[in-house]
Structures are given as structure tokens and as C-alpha cells.
Design a protein around this nucleic acid. Structure first.
Lengths: 226, 226
DNA sequence: TTCATAGTTCGATGCTAATCGAAGCATTGA
DNA sequence: TCAATGCTTCGATTAGCATCGAACTATGAA
């Protein structure tokens, strides 16, 4: 008997097309109902129920009841990270499900990864913050520098409020499409919320795509490369 | 039909106990034969052959023939990263295969992750280098600072030789046991080789455990926290 | 040349898991 | 109170996959 973590059990939970579809759509960070997940997965509610029971038992998703609705979310950012890494591998080895249309390039450009910005613009954000020395390495991956703290305050982000949460301010997340890192963590999430608030970007409904306006993208570029 | 990378196919490849055992042992960075992998996986050579064919077809492992032996290695560092992330999840959700004995704590303390140091000491290494400002964030995660370049030279590492290789000098790798990052990349690998050369540490045969001598561990602690 | 070893292929077996129709339970709205 | 909706459970069906004994192929040593 081998010792250590049983990765086969976790991987097997992710390794079914229906469950993978559910988890992928949950990467948007939004809670979804069992019926919605069934539809996204392309299976009947009975089948979806069976899959969700497995995911819940394996602590991959967390349920929450509200009347007769049952909402599900991913159980932690490590699930998002696993899915991103697996997407990167699938992309490299050519296991892609391709449908002609504009959405795929848009997903690569800017999308939500759980609650923060991913895609080429997410990577550019990370790069720009590092180049401006607003973030730097530490044992948790990345942390805000003193200059970064000033910047956050000037940019309208309540750092004290973020620190009150039980999650790291900054965390590095591997971006499958760019094969580089973007910024996760509560600060990363707050930045994306701020872009929404400023009107620079908005979520495309029923999708993980984040669409920047022309002026929003210009402001974004100015922010990371003044 | 959903567009994008087909993570279910990749995850399914990892989601079989026999295949997961093979991949885990390949995380040591060494090439292993089909017979060795069969033994590690606890299956017959026929079964191992079948599994290896799937892993090869899915570009998870790369084969190399040498006489009548067929050696296998992991196809890239992203596979290592995927396995580490899955181990982290398995650890968090309690999917552990536990065997009483000394090895598990030793695996957590110091082990090889493909070709670099992982475990608590790997995380301490990362932390120490960051605190000494020898590494810093950049778009690829981490990079050597100018002070870090000086340090590497003084420590006996041929950076020019490393740069000649087609892989990043520094890369961040999530450590499942510590839930923090350790240092991968060619520089990370060179550091571990240097620890071996200096006699500070050695590989435990047939295992991923890296065992530091008492004086070696003291030198290591002095290095990261002078 | 012959024998031993490494590894693969073939075919059979058995098990697991995904699927859904039918039925049932819990909750909400009329 | 009753009907509608969301969701789960039950049971049957089917497909896929892991397993290994037997046989085969390729390579190396005697």
C-alpha cells in the first residue's frame, strides 16, 4: 500500500465529462443550482444528482439549501487551481473541444477565474503590478509591497476589509491559456470588482468572459504601465 | 458541446490508482522502466503495458527505448504541478493512504519534486531566498534578482549553463504538504544538485525522500537565514 | 544458435459507473 | 388544500475499463 495523498480519488472525481462541465462552470465563482448544473452538464436531473452527491462526498463542491433549491459552489481555490492546471495540460496535449466562434479568443483574453481576472489581461495585470513593484514574492507566493498597499488605497480598495477575511490577500494562480500566472486572492478579486465598479469591464452573462470597454481597456493599460 | 480544454480526459488519465502510482513515482524525476512501473503500481506487466499505452497516447509520459528496456518519464513540469495540486486537495479532503512508519513525516520534511527540493525544507528555501531578496516576482512567477545572481555564482552554480537550457530559471511550484510554494525551474534543480554535491543531503534510494545530514541541515538553515 | 528476459498483444472475465424512466419527498405558490 | 416545481431515490440497462493467463515479439547474453 502506497502512503500519501490518494490523488486517483480526486482525479477520478474530476475525470468525468459531466462533472468536469459542472466544475468548469462553477469556476465563475457563482453558486449554481442543481438544475442549472444539470443543464450545463447536458445530463438529466437524476444523473446530475448522482454526480453532485459524489462531488459533495469528495468535498469538491459545497452545497447550500435555499427553499427547494440547492446551490453549489466549489469547496476552495485549490479546486480552481487544479482545474486551471488540468486545462493547461489538456491545451498542451491537444485535448480540446473546439467550436468555431468568437468566444474562445475572448475566453483567452479576459475571463473570470473563480473571482479574479484571468486570461491574457489577467497575466498582464500580474506582470504590470510586479514591474511597478506593487507586489513581490513571499512564502505564500506573492504579497503586496508597501508601495502596493498605497496603490490599493488610492485605487479605492478597502485593504482592512480584505484583511478581515480568512484568505490570503495575494495568491498566484497558473493561467492555462497564457501558461503564466495571474493574481488570485482577495486582493485579486477586489481589483476585478473595482474594474466592474469603474465601468471598465463587465461580465458577459452565462459565461466566464469578462469584456472590457475600449476606454476601460485603455485605463487598464495605463494602470499597469503608466 | 462545450468549448475549451477537455479536462475530463486528462483527469481520467490520472484517476486510476495504478496510473496514479506510476506518475507519483515518476515525480522523482528519474526515468523508470515498464517493469519497475508495474511493480510500483502493483499490477502485472500486461496491465502496466495497457496503462502506459494510455498515458503515452495522452502525452502524460514520454517513452524512450534502450535495448529491450522501455524507460518512461513525465512529459513536462505541468504534470508534476497537476499531481502536486491534486495531492494538496487529497490531503485537505482527507483522502490519504496512511501507513504507520517514519516515511510519511520524512516525505513532508524534504523530498524531490521532479528535480528540485519540495517539502517543508523546500518551502523554507523559497521563503529564505525571498526574504533575502534573492528572488522576486515577475510574470513567470519568480525570477532571480541581481543579488540573487551574485549569490548563485558565489554558491557555485553555473547560471550561464542554466540559461542555455530551454526552461525557466525559476518557477513556483505548489507544495501539497506545506500548502505553500517551493522553488522549481532549472535554478531550483541546480540548488538541490549543489546540496548533494556539498554533501548536505542525499537521496534515499527507491524513494523521493531527501535526507539532510545534521551538519548539512545546519548549513542549509544558515544559508537561508544568515 | 539457443536460451533468457523485457515487454506487448490477444481474448476472456468481471466489475464499476453512468445513464434515465418511474416514483417519491420537500417546498412554494395559487 | 391542492397543484406545480425542484430535487432525490430506486431499479434496470448498458457500456467501458481494469485485470490477467496465454502466447507472441524483440533484444541481449551465453
Amino acid at each position: 500500500m502506497k502512503e500519501g495523498p490518494d490523488i486517483a480519488r480526486v482525479a477520478a472525481l474530476l475525470g468525468d465529462p459531466a462533472r468536469a462541465n459542472m466544475l468548469t462552470v462553477l469556476m465563475s465563482g457563482r453558486a449554481l443550482t442543481a438544475a442549472e448544473l444539470a443543464q450545463e452538464a447536458g445530463v438529466t436531473p437524476q444523473t446530475a444528482s448522482s454526480h453532485l452527491a459524489k462531488l459533495e462526498s469528495g468535498q469538491i463542491v459545497v452545497p447550500r439549501k435555499q427553499g427547494r433549491h440547492r446551490y453549489f459552489t466549489l469547496s476552495g481555490p485549490d479546486i480552481v487551481e487544479a482545474l486551471e492546471v488540468l486545462m493547461g495540460i489538456a491545451n498542451r496535449v491537444g485535448h480540446n473541444r473546439v467550436r468555431t466562434g468568437p468566444k474562445y479568443p475572448e475566453l483567452r483574453k479576459a475571463r473570470v477565474c473563480y473571482d479574479h481576472l484571468a486570461g491574457d489581461m489577467g497575466v498582464a495585470l500580474f506582470d504590470g503590478l510586479a514591474k511597478r513593484k506593487l507586489i513581490a514574492s513571499d512564502v505564500n507566493g506573492v504579497a503586496l509591497t508597501p508601495a502596493g498597499i498605497d496603490f490599493a488605497t488610492m485605487f479605492g480598495i478597502d485593504l482592512d476589509g480584505l484583511r478581515a477575511k480568512r484568505r490570503p490577500l495575494c495568491r498566484e494562480c497558473l493561467d492555462w491559456s497564457a501558461r503564466q500566472s495571474h493574481l488570485a486572492g482577495s486582493f485579486g478579486a477586489a481589483l476585478l470588482d473595482r474594474f466592474y465598479d469603474l465601468g471598465w469591464a463587465r461580465r458577459v452573462p452565462e459565461s466566464r468572459i469578462v469584456r472590457f470597454s475600449d476606454t476601460g481597456e485603455k485605463s487598464f493599460r495605463d494602470l499597469i504601465n503608466p
